[in-house]
């Protein structure tokens, strides 16, 4: 369904942000991309969705195949027409529109009003909270509500694959649980996801397969349950030591990385 083959991304013709990234997402799968700040996770998503141009970036090598068609360096609006929706990080709702207007914009490609209504009803059935907030100005919703709205907005386009950037960023644990509950329901309904997260525990709880990224390269990949058991992933991304204790932030901060996977 989605295939990245040796993708390189360069910003302003100077900064090489991705260095030969290869990722495969199959239909119905949820694939997670894990990594720290600046690893290149968001750049990977922007390369896929065609939103790199707004930051003077471009795919300089490799190919991105979406549903059998090459989409590297296509306009973002054309990538959407190929069945992919990008839920950007930073909860970028249309702040001055109401919650329902945001959803209608998301479903702007629906063939007719009946279908649009049908899609709205589907979103509201999955996220009843959004139905209660349909007249609320999106900018005044809470962080968790905005994240749900973004997922709903993406669903309105009826995409074949949703790529989500940091859905748990800046949310309270209760809200993270709610957001992931919705993602789990969507996954159960057969939606394909490509999920980028720093919250590795949450991402691995839902993912079928996962990749770990550092400095613009994929350094580790495997089935999510196997990666969750990997000692390096546990130490570097889940904050759990080999003996099973949770590490404090101070421990992690002073931790001398062995970087096993980098040899």
């Amino acid at each position: 369904m989605l295939e990245l083959n040796n993708v390189e991304v360069i910003y302003s013709d100077v900064i090489l942000a991705l260095k030969g990234v290869s990722i495969t997402v199959r239909e119905g799968q949820c694939v997670a991309l894990l990594g720290g700040n600046g690893a290149g996770k968001s750049t990977t998503l922007k390369a896929i969705s065609g939103t790199l141009k707004s930051e003077d970036g471009k795919v300089s090598a490799g190919s991105i195949i979406l549903n059998g068609k090459p989409v590297q360096n296509l306009e973002a609006s054309d990538v959407v027409k190929n069945g992919l929706i990008h839920v950007m990080e930073g909860r970028r709702v249309l702040r001055h529109l109401t919650s329902e207007q945001n959803l209608i914009v998301g479903g702007h490609m629906a063939p007719n009003a009946t279908e649009l209504k049908h899609r709205l009803d589907h979103v509201y059935s999955l996220m009843p909270r959004l139905a209660d907030l349909r007249s609320r100005t999106a900018g005044f919703m809470s962080g968790g509500e905005q994240q749900l709205l973004l997922i709903g907005r993406a669903m309105m386009a009826r995409p074949r694959i949703i790529v989500i950037d940091e859905p748990s960023l800046g949310l309270a644990p209760m809200m993270i649980r709610d957001v992931y509950e919705v993602l789990k329901q969507l996954k159960a309904q057969g939606t394909t996801f490509f999920l980028v997260e720093q919250n590795s525990a949450a991402a691995l709880s839902i993912a079928d397969y996962a990749y770990v990224m550092e400095n613009g390269r994929i350094v580790l990949d495997g089935p999510a349950d196997k990666l969750a058991e990997n000692e390096d992933v546990k130490e570097f991304y889940l904050g759990v030591s080999a003996s099973g204790e949770r590490k404090s932030y101070r421990d992690i901060k002073h931790y001398r990385r062995r970087k096993r996977w980098l040899g």
């Binding site: 249309l94 702040r95 914009v105 702007h108 490609m109 386009a157």
Partner: peptide
């Protein structure tokens, strides 16, 4: 819908194009 598409462009060009709207 066409008007809301234009309003979305007014708010944020990148978000609008990420939803398939031609800016």
């Amino acid at each position: 819908r066409p008007g809301l598409r234009m309003t979305a462009v007014a708010e944020d060009h990148v978000v609008a194009s990420s939803m398939g709207i031609s800016v």
